[in-house]
Computed example of a mutant assay.
Amino acid sequence: MSEESSCRNFVTTISCPLCHEELIINWQGDDIPYFGEIMYITARCDCSFRFADTMILTQRDPVHYELKVEGPGDLSSRVVRSTSGTIRIPELGIDVEPGSVSESYVTNIEGIMDRILDVVITATKWAKEDGDEERTAKGLEIQQMLRDAMDGKQELTVVIEDPMGNSAIISDRAVSRTLDPKEAAELKTGMIVFDTSSSEMEMDACDPDHSITD
């Protein structure tokens, strides 16, 4: 690991919000080509509490990104979704909003559709078990549209909005703009806010007396 890379990787400690034991938070920096620096933040406690987020270090304004998925080439476009990111597919009436246990991830458009497809399959199964024919039919229709989009046969729009500015669609064809204060205020954040005044730096990788190994 290079000195520059190690200086972007460090750990801090706080009290676990569930059991109040010491919780180690891992911070790992990364540089995404054509986009900028991001920081992955993860924590896991023996009591089962866990937290993961992605912070974009070069952008903080509330953002709206959208990409018209018109063919197989768009499916590989990278997506950074933080815990405060909302994903929408307007043609399907689908909104994926952050909750209190949301986790961040870096994937691509196909990965987003695959995640949504899994949820729709489960929801359709429940609707069928409940004898709800209308919801079952709608679920099957959405499943087919998602599969067609992943096969390049269906055009869909993927939108991601983030009031904290920590999510993005990375593509030359993606359209982005800054959300106005009213739009940003209407979005959920799903964030767990740590009390930084109680955290202590356990080890700084930039300290020559310490080192980090993968």
Rank of each mutant, 00 (worst) to 15 (best):
E4H: 04
E4D: 09
S5L: 13
S5Q: 13
C7S: 11
C7V: 12
N9R: 15
T13C: 07
T13D: 10
T13I: 11
P17A: 07
C19Q: 04
C19P: 08
H20I: 13
E21Q: 14
L23T: 06
I24F: 09
I25F: 03
D31R: 15
I38Y: 06
M39F: 11
T42F: 10
T42C: 06
A43Y: 03
D46H: 12
L57N: 12
R60W: 06
V63R: 14
V63E: 05
V63H: 10
H64E: 06
L67E: 01
K68V: 03
V69H: 08
V69W: 04
E70C: 12
P72R: 14
P72I: 12
P72C: 12
G73Q: 12
G73L: 11
L75H: 08
S76Y: 10
S77I: 01
V79T: 01
V79W: 02
R81Q: 14
R81D: 06
S82P: 01
S82I: 02
T83K: 12
S84D: 02
S84W: 06
R88S: 07
P90R: 03
E91P: 10
G93T: 06
G93P: 06
D95K: 15
E97M: 02
P98W: 04
S102H: 09
S102L: 07
S102Y: 04
E103I: 11
E103C: 08
Y105R: 14
V106I: 13
V106F: 05
T107I: 08
N108G: 00
I109H: 03
I109Q: 04
G111A: 03
D114G: 14
I116D: 01
D118R: 14
V119F: 00
V120Q: 01
T122A: 13
A123N: 15
K125P: 00
E129F: 02
T136A: 15
K138D: 11
E141V: 01
Q143N: 15
L146I: 11
R147W: 00
D148I: 03
G152Q: 05
K153Q: 08
L156A: 04
L156V: 14
V159F: 02
E161S: 01
G165I: 00
G165Q: 01
V175G: 05
V175R: 09
T178G: 00
L179P: 04
P181G: 08
K182R: 11
E186C: 12
E186Q: 15
E186W: 14
K188N: 13
G190V: 07
M191R: 12
I192C: 04
T196M: 01
S198A: 02
S198D: 02
S198E: 04
E202H: 11
M203C: 12
M203W: 08
M203Q: 10
D204E: 02
D204W: 08
A205N: 08
A205W: 09
P208Q: 05
D214T: 05
